[in-house]
Every structure is written in C-alpha cells, then in structure tokens.
C-alpha cells in the first residue's frame, strides 16, 4: 500500500512543474494585483524554513531528503491551485481572483496541505530504520508549526484540495479526513485560534454581546 501511494504520487507529479504553469500565469495576470512575485517569494522562503525545521527534527544528514519532499509538495501545490481556479472560474464565471490569490493564508494553507500529502505518502519518520534514538514524528500537525499556520485556516483548504485532485489515493483522502477530524475536535479550539474571534463577531452581529464572559469560555 505504501509503495502504491508513492508510485501514484510520482505519477501525478511527473508532468507537474516546479514553477507556475502558463495557465496559472494567465490567472495571475488577470488579477487586479498580480500575485506572481509574492507567490514565488513565499515558496522560496518556506523552502528555507521547511529544510531547516526538517533537519532539526531528523538530523542534518537528512536535510536533502526534506528539500526533495518540499519540492514535490510545491509541484502538487501549483497543480492543485490551477485545478481549483478552473473550478472556481466555472462555478462563479469570473477570471479575476485577485483577493484569493493575494491571500497569504490561502497560499500557506494550500502549500502546507500539499506538503502534508507528500509527507504522509512517504511515511512519518524520515529516519525510520537507521537506528537513531531520536525519531521525530513528522506527521500532522507538525506541518502547522513549521509554517506557523493555524489549524482553523488549514482546515479551509482540505475539502477543496480533495475535490481538485481526483488522483489522490484512498489512503491520502483518509489521511486528510483524519486531519479534518482532529482539527474539528481539538486543534481549532486551542488558544489563539481565529475561531474565537469569529464566534465573538458572530454573536456581536446577532446583538448578543456578553462583555463579562471570556472568549475562550
């Protein structure tokens, strides 16, 4: 099953590129504010961060493995982004996705989801079987701490990601579903989650402000 997942992922990403496709460039050019430069810069910045955190987690000898996995994640990220935009264009009959494509959290969440799929495909422990005593679990939600991403925001991209990539294996869909459940049941309710502000705003809109109650309660 593990080999099948890896082979399927390699097959999906064989024809994918490390840079935005011509189709994606057209979407970027259609934006009120062209997001191309910020997207490329973010991918580059997060690569440095991911490599560093990966090496810290499993040892400097494995840094190159981390780099390879990140690069596969980037290919999947651009591929899924293109698929999502095509679906949205069809659904909404618009071509200008300036607000979405200039949203830092959207891109960080989407890239994190893509890298999470790659990490889950290759297994949770990079140093499996080499006898080291400090094996680190790199499975979800490790990626959230690496990208400094809130679970609530990561959750937003999961279903659309699954819809946009029909080649995902059943195991990967199940993995993403487990991530969703974990966020819903626990991670989205941690201190600092954007969820509490949204609940407060929702109550204020309904005229139900309660100054005496702490938001966490």
């Amino acid at each position: 099953a593990a080999m099948n997942n890896i082979q399927q992922l390699i097959m999906i990403l064989n024809s994918a590129t490390d840079k935005p496709s011509d189709t994606l460039i057209v979407y970027f050019n259609n934006c009120t504010v062209n997001p191309k430069d910020s997207i490329l810069k973010r991918v580059e910045n997060l690569e440095h961060i991911f490599k560093k955190k990966f090496a810290e987690a499993v040892g400097p000898a494995w840094a190159e493995i981390g780099s390879q996995r990140y690069k596969l994640g980037v290919r999947l990220y651009y591929r899924v982004m293109e698929s999502m935009l095509k679906s949205e264009e069809e659904r909404l009959s618009v071509q200008n996705f300036s607000k979405l494509l200039n949203d830092n959290i959207f891109h960080t969440s989407l890239l994190a989801c893509a890298v999470e799929v790659v990490m889950a495909t290759y297994g949770r422990n990079a140093s499996q079987g080499n006898g080291t005593s400090a094996e680190t679990d790199l499975s979800f939600p490790w990626i959230l701490s690496v990208f400094d991403l809130k679970a609530f925001d990561f959750y937003k991209v999961i279903e659309s990601f699954i819809k946009a990539e029909p080649s995902l294996t059943r195991e990967m869909i199940k993995h993403l579903e487990r991530c969703e459940h974990r966020i819903m049941e626990s991670l989205a309710w941690q201190s600092g989650s954007p969820l509490f502000d949204l609940i407060r705003q929702s109550k204020e809109r309904e005229g139900q402000t309660d100054q005496s109650e702490p938001s966490s309660t």
Partner: peptide
C-alpha cells in the same frame, strides 16, 4: 472519495471560505 463526507454546499467553494465572494 466514496467514504469522504463533502461538507461544502452547492454554492460554496474556496472563494467563500477565504471571504473572497
């Protein structure tokens, strides 16, 4: 995707989730 529960409704997509509608 047979076992996966799709929660988004007919008129919902990624644009709405990131307040871009």
């Amino acid at each position: 995707t047979q076992d996966y529960h799709f929660g988004l409704e007919e008129g919902e997509g990624i644009s709405e989730l990131f307040d871009c509608d």
